[in-house]
């Protein structure tokens, strides 16, 4: 005997079986809505976190650009040294000038 007749018989049995129940647990819709509300709350913090992470690269790039431009357009090193001397010795100058 071939398996096909048995397969056909079993498929017929499945067709004749009672359709599955459409019973719904009490207040199931409330449960789904609670899940949706919780997910929306989580989504807010998740999207804020994602936004901040995305901001990291532009912020870092901006820092590099600002730093580089400040170095490029700042006064020359000898001027910087003179300014440093003036700041460090400022107190000494004022103290020697006083009587």
């Amino acid at each position: 005997m071939k398996p096909e007749p048995l397969r056909q018989k079993l498929i017929a049995a499945a067709r004749m079986a009672e359709p599955p129940s459409d019973r719904v647990p009490f207040a199931f819709e409330k449960r789904v809505m609670a899940r949706l509300a919780a997910r929306e709350f989580n989504d807010f913090w998740a999207s804020l976190g994602a936004l901040l992470w995305r901001a990291v690269i532009p912020c870092f790039a901006l820092t590099i650009i600002v730093g580089a431009s400040s170095i490029a357009f700042s006064s020359r090193p000898e001027d910087l040294g003179a300014q440093l001397d003036a700041v460090l010795l400022a107190d000494l100058d004022t103290s020697t000038e006083s009587p």
């Binding site: 599955p20 129940s21 459409d22 019973r23 719904v24 199931f28 819709e29 809505m33 949706l36 929306e40």
Partner: peptide
Amino acid sequence: QTEAFEELIRRHQPRVFATARR
């Protein structure tokens, strides 16, 4: 209006439950 989704769930959940039970 997220709360409007509750009515859609209430209407269609029996059929979705029957499908899932298969």
